[in-house]
Design a protein around this nucleic acid. Sequence first.
DNA 1: CTGAAAGCGCTAACAC
DNA 2: GTGTTAGCGCTTTCAG
Lengths: 335, 335
Amino acid sequence: MNIYDIAKLSGVSIATVSRVVNGSPRVSEKTKQKVLAVMKENDYTPNVFARGLGLDSMKTVGIICPNIADSYMAKAVAYLESSLHSYGYDCILGCSGFGQEEKQNYVNMLLSKRIDTLVLVGSTYAGNGKDEYDTDYIREAAKKTPVFMINGRVRGDNIYCACADDYQATYEVTKSMIRRGRERILFMYDSDSFSGRQKMKGYEAALADAGYPIRGELKFRTKNDIEYTKNLLLEYSRTLEFDGVLATEDAMAIGAVKYAKVKAISVPEELSISGYNDSIMAISSEPELTSVDSKLNVLCKTTVDHMISLLEKQEEIEKNVVVPCEIVKRCTTDF
Amino acid sequence: MNIYDIAKLSGVSIATVSRVVNGSPRVSEKTKQKVLAVMKENDYTPNVFARGLGLDSMKTVGIICPNIADSYMAKAVAYLESSLHSYGYDCILGCSGFGQEEKQNYVNMLLSKRIDTLVLVGSTYAGNGKDEYDTDYIREAAKKTPVFMINGRVRGDNIYCACADDYQATYEVTKSMIRRGRERILFMYDSDSFSGRQKMKGYEAALADAGYPIRGELKFRTKNDIEYTKNLLLEYSRTLEFDGVLATEDAMAIGAVKYAKVKAISVPEELSISGYNDSIMAISSEPELTSVDSKLNVLCKTTVDHMISLLEKQEEIEKNVVVPCEIVKRCTTDF
DNA sequence: CTGAAAGCGCTAACAC
DNA sequence: GTGTTAGCGCTTTCAG
């Protein structure tokens, strides 16, 4: 059942059917109703390929994240999908993992699908900060379609970034721990991503402002994994002393809680622990964790709004948006 | 840059270029290399729309789930995407929510995108069991494209289902609690979905087999939410007595843990609690929860394998696959 | 092994 | 208001 069939059955030309389908005003009410009736009767759906061929657009946005099973990414994709859907856009999803080559492959693949725009979710796409070349593929992509980054910053034409103010967040959590008398705060991180670097800077700044030394051994590199973190802490516990833990992911913070449990260290009395992203883990834990809400919903909403302005109204939009985080205080840092 | 440009630059016809692109063997090695070189040089990508128009397929599968922010769905989508990607398929993702009308809309929308097949993730798409009409839209969709259900059962041509054996899982957890001397086991659930019904039947069967009565007041309807469940339990705690909790979602089980904490009931000594889906919550909690691993990865893997058999080899495939669950025992039921 | 040409279903410019 | 027609870029017979 195609446009020709509908035209024949309605006794009009395909042009008229096309007009009806696209809601053109230049059709008489009568013919319009007639065509609509025939369409409904025959359960007609326009062929998106044919349409796409002509318009070179399919109202589709490509979303790439490293791993949708991660609750942060999942939340982001949930927001993006639902709000894009309300604007009539579909989402093609790609989970690229963290490898440089895979990321590039995914970007190229989605680009070849003639997506209207590309969204990259997660700090990992912003490179490790050492090498500008790491992000060349994004600039390359941006020549073909606008690129939107969620929580990553990459410079270049046609690239738009929305980031949480991770610097400020870790600055404040650290300061708050210091205010409560913590002197050796462990900073737990797992990558050199853009946001990872911001978080570390915030931590360092707060220490510096308080006149505390920045100790290399308190920068604790681990994985975003409960068990791994717990075991690593246990392993280092003979030599490493700390009375506060600033985790850059909730799972690491939970690892610290589990560690404390094994060592019979009371949280938060003897050890303050704060998490990040305010995930379900933070409230599943006992005690419940203070955690940074990185305002992902705001980031995503802003991104989609900007995207629509750009795509449909050709408006100028901000290149870099920064959204403040909210520190959700539970018992583990304040007591 | 289209096929004509490449043809011209290579000094061949578009047919030859097309053959090269599609890996046809009827091209001389020499021309093939020539064309390949020109393609690479000009960074040529075939237009998917034009190709789709002719072939009426875009190697794309539609995935619908109620909410990708839910960790169970997210995990499923992660598995599906990665394994479909390895077969060269892309994923269009839709998050439909739980409303009947939204579900139908999403299905129709994806169908109109000429997806090669549709995957429905989650028990909610199997209806509430009362009304066959609820699932008519799925049978309707199946007339146009094969439909695969993850953890839901719907009868009909061209519909293929893969389910976890939830009945057996709750049967065994219940039995295990009974064996440990629990006499009043609270069954917590939140919906009349297909899997919800299976779970309840397993619970009832285990009670019956042990010669215990099935008490209506121990079938506790709540929401898949920690705080809500905790508060509901507190509210009913004056009248409701129980020494075991069989939750059909991890969040409910965590709610029970939080409730026990408020009431100073020791877990698992005084109260056994088991969760479901073996999510990150189960191990974030203190104590860590026994939980049912519903083998989502196996479900998804099987589904994709079958899908490929059907789509690419036209093979007959099983209509209903049932995968046994694994009960991951932690301290909360065994002690 | 290669080329010419007929669609695939739709949109939009152009006539009437 | 409505119809005619020329593409959009590719695949696929059918000839050679």
